[in-house]
């Protein structure tokens, strides 16, 4: 008996969390697209952004979504530091070496955050537009979740402008297409790498702030791990290196996680919400079976 109300509720909440998943994956894909590096420490940067939103709201009293701005700033600095200290020595190293290095960076960030902020699970309640919330088919999406989804779109637009409307973006795209060719026409590839890495980290940290505004609870040093995992899956689903692919796959992933619940809820003796996780990964395998380079992959 898939109830229409439940279906609508699942679709809406799926779309909202999906937009956040999407933006949380874009940075991963940008870094892979340009540098061919899978950032295994991805989740740690998301966690960092979530803490920024938490601090912005609880210590400064500003809306947590301003954490996005803080995230962009912190991400830029951090991205450049990590690039110049570590990543640039690993261009010609095997793919595996970069996996290991980014993993270690992730651990370092986690433990440093824990040393400063403690191991507690933090959170806040922020719902400035609660009075304007409306109901669709008996489901009332929270205003802060809608705001978070809209911020994801805004951040995506920002990234779009940088990549498609600036000279830097042009150079980045050139490097993605043909590294040697870009060098020949006088592009400083080293600088483009640094800029892209920093840009990817910026977006990732900022997306952590959006995620915090969406979830509001459960902010702790190890919260990022699940987003590394989901980020990988979404990135591959959309096609590695493809920025629109990552976003679309994120939305699909969110949608699928939510809607498949309704189908599973009818089965006796199982735990449907837990099984949706299995189903989401099954979906990944099916997509790869049909299209081995993901939805938008080349």
């Amino acid at each position: 008996m898939p109830d229409l109300n439940l279906l609508v509720a699942s679709i809406i909440s799926g779309l909202l969390i999906g937009a956040v998943y999407g933006i949380a994956t874009v940075g991963l894909n940008l870094i892979f697209g340009v540098l061919r590096i899978v950032n295994v420490g991805h989740g740690a940067f998301i966690m960092l952004g979530a803490y920024l939103a938490f601090i912005v709201y609880t210590s400064l009293g500003l809306p947590p979504l301003l954490g996005v701005v803080a995230g962009l700033a912190v991400g830029a600095v951090l991205g450049l530091i990590i690039y110049y200290l570590v990543i640039r020595y690993l261009h010609d190293a095997p793919e595996l070496a970069t996996l290991l290095a980014t993993f270690a960076i992730g651990i370092l960030i986690q433990e440093l955050v824990k040393a400063v902020m403690g191991p507690d699970s933090r959170g806040f309640v922020w719902n400035p537009l609660a009075a304007y919330e409306f109901e669709i088919f008996g489901y009332k999406p929270s205003s802060f979740q809608i705001l978070a989804a809209l911020s994801s779109l805004a951040l995506l637009a920002f990234l779009y402008v940088v990549i498609y409307r600036t000279r830097l973006g042009l150079a980045i795209r050139a490097v993605v297409q043909d590294r040697e060719g870009a060098m020949v026409v006088g592009i400083d590839v080293e600088r483009i790498y640094a800029a892209s890495f920093a840009l990817g980290i910026m977006v990732t940290v900022a997306s952590g702030a959006i995620l915090a505004a969406y979830l509001q609870t459960g902010i702790h040093p190890y919260m990022g791990e699940i987003y590394t995992l989901k980020g990988f899956v979404i990135a591959v689903m959309g096609g590695l290196g493809s920025i629109p692919g990552a976003f679309i796959a994120g939305v699909l992933f969110g949608l699928f996680e939510n809607v498949s619940y309704l189908l599973l809820a009818g089965i006796e003796g199982v735990q449907p919400l837990v099984l949706t996780r299995s189903i989401a990964f099954l979906l990944l395998l099916l997509i790869l079976l049909v299209k081995p380079t993901g939805l938008m992959g080349r």
């Binding site: 591959v236 990964f281 990944l284 790869l288």
Partner: peptide
């Protein structure tokens, strides 16, 4: 990387 991540899914 596609192989790597598909196996995470498994």
């Amino acid at each position: 990387a596609y192989f790597a991540i598909a196996t995470i899914g498994v």
